[in-house]
């Protein structure tokens, strides 16, 4: 099928502001958007820049705003978009070049919630025990690939870039609800700060944007409840 792809481009060495460029090409309905971007880069315009690696929704490199929705370019097919496709960088992070954004502040927020296992008890000879039911409680939040689809779809984050954002909170959830972890108090202290958890206005954009089907808003609500319980 013949498709038209409009891409919002920005060359930091030439452009003062971003500009739309249009490409026409032949595509297979089963092609991924990433395949189409590759086709453009490899055959029409080598300077088009974007991040990509695994090409099947696991590495989290290629989050983009595709026809108005945050998605991974490797996880959405042309047949589901139609003949006219518009691609922009994800919002709320500084654009470096074309579809590449500066991810540093995103990772800073992630690191702020102490996204690592905390338990200073002596380790057993074998594994720590955990029942399948205890494991299930935080299963969804272990799926996070840090692609930033959720955080950069959040209207609160667009207005206030210092808001920790849904991705960081999901990763806090992953440890807070892990029966083996002992770091909840430290994490809640971070989440309780002015740019923490309470900024969430339950817009649900994050849940809709998540390419891993994590119920992000629910995870945020779960953490809010823990915080209320602890502080009341």
């Amino acid at each position: 099928m013949q498709i038209t792809v409009k891409i919002k481009r920005f060359d930091p060495e030439k452009d003062k502001r971003s500009r739309w460029t249009e490409y026409r090409l032949e595509a297979n309905p089963m092609d991924r958007v990433l395949d189409v971007l590759n086709e453009i880069k490899w055959e029409q315009d080598g300077s088009l820049s974007y991040r990509r690696s695994c090409a099947h929704g696991i590495c989290g490199s290629d989050a983009m705003l595709i026809n108005g929705v945050n998605r991974l370019a490797c996880k959405v097919l042309i047949k589901d978009l139609g003949n006219d496709i518009a691609i922009e960088p994800i919002r709320g992070l500084p654009v470096e070049k074309d579809l590449i954004v500066d991810m540093e502040s995103f990772f800073d927020s992630y690191e702020a919630v102490l996204p690592y296992f905390i338990n200073d008890d002596p380790v057993p000879a074998g594994e720590r025990l955990q029942s399948p039911e205890e494991r299930e409680i935080f299963d969804a939040s272990t799926k996070c690939i840090l692609c930033a689809c959720c955080t950069t779809s959040c209207p609160v984050f667009w207005v206030n870039g210092r808001y920790l954002g849904p991705a960081a909170i999901v990763n806090a959830h992953r440890f807070i609800f892990d029966s083996r972890d002992r770091g909840t108090d430290q994490r809640l202290e971070v989440l309780n700060q002015p740019n923490g958890l309470w900024r969430c206005r339950t817009a649900y954009n994050c849940t809709e944007a998540c390419p891993r089907d994590i119920p992000v808003t629910k995870a945020i609500e779960d953490v809010k409840r823990v915080l209320l319980w602890r502080t009341s």
Partner: peptide
């Protein structure tokens, strides 16, 4: 902290 899947007895 790696979240392995678990057996019924928690291993």
């Amino acid at each position: 902290g790696l979240p392995f899947s678990r057996t019924p007895d928690g291993r």
